[in-house]
Every structure is written in C-alpha cells, then in structure tokens.
Design a protein around this nucleic acid. Structure first.
Lengths: 255, 255
DNA sequence: GCGCAAAGACAACATGGGTTATCAGTAGCG
DNA sequence: CGCTACTGATAACCCATGTTGTCTTTGCGC
C-alpha cells in the first residue's frame, strides 16, 4: 500500500498528450525492454557522472537533489510512476544532481542515444517527450513562484496538491487519501524549510481541518481551501498540447 | 551604454555549443529575417495567449514574469541578447507568463512551426537548441536552490554572478563593471524579497566591499568573496555538451 | 518482547526579513 | 525651470521561521 499498486509505463504517460500510432508505441516500448528492480535508497545516478543513461520509472517514487558543499540537500524533482528521468541534465557533460529511490520500485534504463534516435524517427513522439519534459520544468517553476511568495502553510498546501493531481493523472485509484512515502524532512528539503517548521505547520493544518499527514499517507480534508490558500492552478499540469504544434505535425492521426 | 552595444544573434549563441555547418547556419538565419525594434516596456506576449510565436532577442533585455491574482509579480527569466524566448511554454495551450522588454531592443519573431521544421531538418541544431533551453531551465533551478538555502546577501551575490557570467559569454567587452537595466524592485521580484530589503542588503554589500549597484550598472568589487558566499558554480552555464550525445550525431563535423 | 535508532511533537529563544512610513535624490516632462 | 512621479535610503517595529534541545512515538532487528 505504500507504493503505487500497478505499473505505469511511459507510453501510458505520453498517451495523455497525443494519440500515438502503433509505430510510435512500438518505438517507445523499445525503451522499456529492460525493467530492473531497484531497492529503496538506491542511487540511479550521482552528481558529476556523465549522463549517458536515461530511465523510465515504472513503479515506485524517486527524487533528484542537489547536495551543496556544506552538505545541505535541496530536492528538485519528485518522480512518480510513468515519469522519464534525466532529460533535464541530458545535454550537460555531467549530472548536477543525485537521484535516489524513495521506495523500492522498477526502472527501465536506456542509453541516451536512443532518444536522439526517436527524435529522428517520430516527430509526434518528439513532441510528446518535449511536452512531458516541459511539464517537469513547469512544476519546478511553479514551486519557485509559490515558495517565494507564500508562507509555510501555503507551500505545503501547494506541494500536496501538486502530488495529488500528478498522482491522479496516472492512477485512477487515487482519492482524497493517498500513499506518500515522504518524511517531514523530505518536505523540508523540497520546500526549503526546516523539518521542525514542517512539523509545526502540519499540526496547525490538521487542526484547521485542511489536511492530515501520517507516516504513510496524506488525507486531503478540505480541497477547496487548500486550492485557495496555495493559489494552485491544476491547469499548469494540463495534458493539452498547443494546437498550433499538433496541427503542424506531419501525420495528425494515428497512421 | 545602458543596453548592450552590439547585436547578438541566436547563431552566435548556439555556436558556443557545437560547430554548425553552413546549412545549419542558413537554416538558423531564416528565423531572424524579420528583426523588429521594440520599445522599453513593450509586451511580447501575455499570460493565457496561445504560444504560436517564438522570439530571438537580438538587442536589449527582457524578462518573463508570473502575475498572481493578488497582483504580486514573480520574475522567472531574464533574457539577454542571443537568447531564444518562449520554448518553455511552447507545448502548452496557453502562456503562463508575461514577457516584457526591460530596455528598448530588437527581437525577431518567428512562427512556432518553424522550430518543428528545424527539428526535422537538422539533428545538430535540435541538439543545440535543446542545450540552450536546458541551460535556461538550469538557471532557474540553480536560483531555486540558492534562494531556498541562503540569506539575502547570498541571493543577491548569486544573481549578480549569474548575470556577470551570462553577459561575458556573449559580450567580450563585459568587465568587472557592466550595465544592468534592473531596478532594486526588479531584484526583489526575481529573488522573492521586498525592495526595502534589497536596498538594505545592497548598502550592506557595498560597505563590505563586495559590489556596488547604481541605477545603471553593477561593479563587482570582490569576485572571489562573491563566489564564496553565493556558492555559485560558473560551470553550470557551461557551453560544453554531453560527449555521449555529440558522438551520436549523424554528421559530427561541419558538412 | 526488548532495545535501539529514526521520526515526530513540542517548547523557548534568536533573528532575518516583512511592513510601514518618511525623506531625499533623480528623471521625465510641460 | 520647476512640478511630479518614481526610485532609493533609512528607521522602528513585528512576525514567521530558524535553532537548539528534550521528550515521545514508531518501527525494526534480534
């Protein structure tokens, strides 16, 4: 119950954006031919390594994080099942983040060149992958905006809603109550606050009837007020593409 | 003297990453056939518009910004000459930011479909454009990390160094003293602090012999200490690409 | 079932930065 | 040349969050 029950593949993810042809699906499937179980806490890559492998996350959660010289950790991405991991750093000669599994799970590693290959074979897949990457970036940008402008309560509300909507997208079974394998200290690393203050604020939010976080899961008690105080915009995670682009694709329908 | 003296085109920018063939250069040049002067304060796009036009910035500075319902403004990107504007939001059905000129300048608008066209014609240009986009994103991520972990002095130091190294990359004439058309309130919107505190902190930093900001420019007084207190890593803006990718390109050299 | 380590709750205190207000330069403009 | 609006400096005050430390709860290995 701690990790998502079913497996999600990238195809499930990218299909949200665009109708994929059978050829595209087969091409995508070649990325996921080598599923590999990974243990909780396992590192997929480390800062300063060369990014020559990308991963799809089929099951479990992972996160990427900056480690500063002073040993402080800042979490940048939370990866959920179906996510593609590593595109942001792909063009750099070295990784700048570590990526660690938050739970046990299953990943599919594939060589970076395979992506270039896909770019040359399928414009629609290229677009879908871009869209997915852009949404990962927008998640970070939105977090930046929110973090800079709001207090601890709003930061937490914003992040919880981010998780809620991202999870619902790939897992129908997610309801007001969903499993979250994150500690209070992880919230802190993500939102740039101390775990002490996370604890303080979570207690406060529970007293106010907003949400309840236990060790394993989160229960959303008052969705409307959470949306209100965090100014979260679910549309930012939209699956809709820019019509200008889809119209310009060579073969609009499934071929 | 307030705006950069010379013009910089995208080619100048992308050439940093990769040797471009003549064909590639000609292809790129087609994007910049319609230079258009823009006035200070002019908006290039607004939130909620559909992103059907991209821009290259040839001369002048611009910034993109989120406006929240409560009217607060959060600056996300600072665009400098040579930058490509609009890729992050390209795949979304609507812009989420406003983009405004900070100075007068020259931009080259081109239709979004042209980019897809380039993707299909030139793998090396595709890679170079990705690299540039990824670096814009990394700038934001680094700012996030830095902002969350450090105090006002370090935030300002970090941002000033970001500007310094980005400017030096495209403009040889930049020295310890360089023109910056940003107000203290712009610093505030960018770094998530009030202009009052920006003022306070700038005074403090000048007293400490770190840097001096006037209305028109910034003077770096002690580069080493600025690097130290901000933990800024100039390598993050590296022009180097991932060798794994360049090796996989169809035609490695200029063809 | 016991013991230990990790996670979380809570309290007391310190402080960086927000808020508000006032005043002084500065730039734009008639 | 002077009016006006904007930008920046500075001060007083306050609050949200960081810091430190202690105690409780939970989970896990033996």
């Amino acid at each position: 119950m701690a990790t998502a029950p079913q497996e999600v593949c990238v195809t499930d993810n990218l299909m949200h954006f665009l109708e994929l042809s059978e050829t595209d699906k087969r091409l995508l499937a070649t990325l996921e031919q080598t599923p590999q179980p990974v243990a909780k806490g396992q590192q997929l890559w480390k800062a300063s390594e060369r990014p020559d492998t990308l991963y799809t996350l089929r099951r479990g959660w992972a996160y990427s994080m900056h480690r500063s010289e002073s040993g402080e950790e800042q979490v940048l991405d939370i990866f959920l099942p179906g996510d593609l991991m590593g595109i942001r750093e792909l063009t750099f000669p070295a990784h700048s983040t570590d990526v660690v599994m938050l739970t046990s799970g299953v990943v599919c590693p594939f060589p970076a060149e395979r992506l270039l290959d896909i770019y040359q074979r399928s414009p629609s897949l290229t677009l879908a992958i871009h869209a997915a990457a852009a949404r990962q970036q927008v998640i970070i940008s939105k977090r930046l905006v929110n973090i800079l402008r709001h207090d601890a309560r709003a930061k937490i509300a914003h992040f919880v809603l981010e998780l809620y909507y991202r999870l619902k997208r790939v897992d129908e079974s997610v309801h007001r109550n969903f499993a979250v394998p994150l500690l209070q200290s992880d919230f802190g690393k993500l939102l740039g606050m101390t775990k002490v203050h996370v604890s303080r604020t979570l207690s406060e939010m529970e007293n106010q009837g907003l949400l309840r976080k236990t060790r394993k899961d989160i229960q959303i008690l008052d969705l409307d007020r959470l949306l209100e105080i965090s100014a979260f915009d679910p549309m930012k995670l939209t699956d809709q593409l820019n019509p200008t682009l889809t119209a310009a694709l060579p073969s609009p329908g499934p071929s």
